[in-house]
Simulated scan of single mutants.
Amino acid sequence: MRFAAVLLALALAGCASGSSRYDRYARLLTPTATPSKVVATELAFARMAQEKGQWTAFRDYATGDAVMFVPEPVNAQEWLKKQSDPAEAVKWQPHEVWSSCDGSLAVTRGAWQRSNGTSGYFTTVWQRQKNGEYKWVMDQGDMVAEPLVEPDFIRTKIASCDGKQFPAVIVSPPGASIHKGGSDDGTLDWYVTVEPDRSRRVVARMWDGSAWQFVLRESIDANPS
């Protein structure tokens, strides 16, 4: 509160001395995207899994209403509290990050590996909390036949802040359930539709300044296990 009051006083002072100074301080008061912080959170999450246990880390970084798929959709905290940490935690690395313009929501995608030699990919949705830290609200993934190639650097993309308009409302197909969310500013959203056979479709959309673009579309086949 004290910091915000100081910034407000500086902004008002800047208004009296010229619009450029006012604009500079006004930007300090506006929520902004920080994909580097999302990456740092994802890496800390992965590190905690190795140091303190896989499900311990998942519990610590999840919100109270987070959803995961096992393969049916479940409340993550309810499911995780019944799980014991495996002897060896899965390892993972983020490859891509998409962030809303205001930084209130981000989506990460990357690769995971188990000690038994299997590998796959993951998709995680991160939501900024009131304290400024990120926690995940959706996590899902699947196995792949060939390990994903790790990029030279983690790719990041931020939604445009120009000409914002909220996306069309998504309605679940007949017989399917839907899990969805979006950023506070309406520049990034996600949804997962789950069919009765537990197959699912994962989508993330981003505003580019003139239209909505699909940045992520994944289909996971039915899995009886």
Score class of each variant (00 low, 15 high):
Leu105Ile: 01
Leu105Asn: 09
Leu105Asp: 08
Leu105Tyr: 12
Leu105Gln: 01
Leu105Ser: 10
Ala106Asp: 13
Ala106Glu: 04
Ala106Tyr: 02
Ala106Thr: 01
Val107Ala: 07
Val107His: 02
Thr108Glu: 08
Thr108His: 11
Thr108Arg: 02
Thr108Phe: 07
Arg109Leu: 03
Arg109Thr: 13
Arg109Gly: 14
Gly110Asn: 01
Gly110Leu: 01
Gly110Trp: 01
Ala111His: 08
Ala111Leu: 00
Trp112Lys: 05
Trp112Gly: 15
Gln113Phe: 12
Arg114Thr: 02
Arg114Cys: 00
Arg114Glu: 10
Ser115Leu: 08
Asn116Val: 05
Asn116Ala: 07
Asn116Thr: 02
Gly117Phe: 11
Thr118Met: 14
Thr118Gln: 14
Thr118Ile: 04
Thr118Phe: 10
Thr118Asn: 13
Ser119Thr: 13
Ser119Gly: 06
Ser119Lys: 02
Gly120Ala: 05
Gly120Asp: 07
Tyr121Asp: 12
Tyr121Asn: 09
Tyr121Glu: 12
Phe122Lys: 04
Phe122Asn: 01
Phe122Gly: 04
Phe122Met: 01
Phe122Trp: 08
Thr123His: 13
Thr123Gln: 05
Thr123Glu: 12
Thr124Pro: 00
Thr124Trp: 00
Thr124Asp: 08
Val125Leu: 15
Val125Phe: 12
Trp126Pro: 05
Trp126Asp: 09
Trp126Gly: 06
Trp126Cys: 13
Trp126Leu: 12
Arg128Pro: 09
Arg128Trp: 00
Arg128Ser: 06
Gln129Ile: 08
Gln129Ala: 11
Lys130Glu: 15
Lys130Asp: 15
Asn131Ala: 12
Asn131Phe: 03
Asn131Met: 01
Gly132Cys: 11
Gly132His: 13
Glu133Cys: 06
Glu133Asn: 15
Tyr134Ile: 07
Tyr134His: 07
Tyr134Arg: 12
Tyr134Phe: 09
Tyr134Val: 04
Lys135His: 13
Trp136Asn: 00
Trp136Leu: 05
Val137Phe: 10
Val137His: 08
Val137Trp: 04
Val137Ile: 14
Val137Cys: 06
Val137Ala: 09
Met138Arg: 03
Met138Phe: 02
Met138Asp: 03
Asp139Met: 04
Asp139His: 15
Asp139Ser: 10
Asp139Ala: 04
Gln140Thr: 09
Gln140Ser: 09
Gln140Asn: 10
Gly141Trp: 08
Gly141Asn: 11
Asp142Cys: 01
Asp142His: 03
Asp142Glu: 14
Asp142Arg: 04
Asp142Pro: 08
Met143Gly: 14
Met143Gln: 14
Met143Leu: 13
Val144Ile: 12
Ala145Tyr: 03
Ala145Lys: 10
Ala145Phe: 06
Glu146Asp: 05
Pro147Gln: 12
Pro147His: 13
Leu148Val: 05
Leu148Glu: 12
Leu148Met: 15
Leu148Asn: 05
Glu150His: 00
Glu150Asn: 08
Pro151Trp: 05
Pro151Gln: 03
Pro151Asn: 06
Asp152Val: 07
Phe153Asp: 05
Phe153Ile: 02
Phe153His: 10
Phe153Thr: 08
Ile154Arg: 00
Ile154Thr: 01
Ile154Ser: 04
Ile154Glu: 00
